[in-house]
């Protein structure tokens, strides 16, 4: 995870911060990348996370954090350009390809990622996982959605409630 010391970030040499996962793994990352997280941004602006201190993240385990940081590092340059009016189409296409690849993951990982994106308030990642979940839902009936999203089959009461709310989904006229 260690990024090169040199760097031509916004303010001269890239500042590094240390993040500590719930299972006590330390990650060293550029401040610009970590700042994609609204939660971390404030701490980092206050000068936290530098030196040997590190920022503890008790809600995020190391596997998830490394995944999250992979995203942040990839997206940090574009974010630094402020949505990047000067980004080329190639760059954007590359990011898109990366994003698609990135969420092509197991459901349990996806879930951890959703929670991490939420806790760390990383807006781009939140949108990305929302889109992924939406893609999983598209064209499915409520029962299929339940199964896709890992619901147990409904109890009779839940079934009644579901029916009461909507709908016997006829999927008529298929």
């Amino acid at each position: 995870m260690a990024a090169p010391e040199s760097g031509d970030g916004n303010n001269g040499a890239a500042r590094m911060v240390t993040l500590i996962s719930s299972d006590n793994t330390r990650f060293e990352v550029e401040a610009a990348a970590a700042s994609l997280s609204q939660t971390l941004q404030l701490t980092i602006l206050d000068g936290g996370g530098g030196g040997g201190d590190g920022i503890p993240l008790p809600n995020v385990d190391s596997a998830t954090l490394s995944k999250v940081l992979e995203y942040c590092i990839k997206h940090a340059p574009a974010a630094a350009n402020g949505g990047a009016p000067n980004a080329t189409a190639v760059d954007r296409a590359e990011l898109e390809r990366f994003d698609n690849e990135f969420v092509n993951i197991d459901q349990s990982v996806l879930y951890s990622l959703i929670m991490a994106a939420h806790n760390l308030e990383i807006e781009g990642l939140q949108s990305l996982v929302a889109k992924k979940v939406a893609d999983m839902i598209k064209g499915k009936s409520p029962m299929e959605i339940r199964r896709t999203l890992g619901f147990p089959d409904p109890t009779p009461e839940e079934q009644a409630e579901m029916n009461a709310h909507m709908l016997e989904y006829g999927w008529a006229y298929e």
Binding site: D135, I137, K138, G139, R146, E161, M162, M166, L167
Partner: peptide, 16 residues
Amino acid sequence: HLSFLDRLAFAAVCKT
């Protein structure tokens, strides 16, 4: 990210 009918179905799940 969902269209109208997908929203209907998703809402039925979320509601419960």
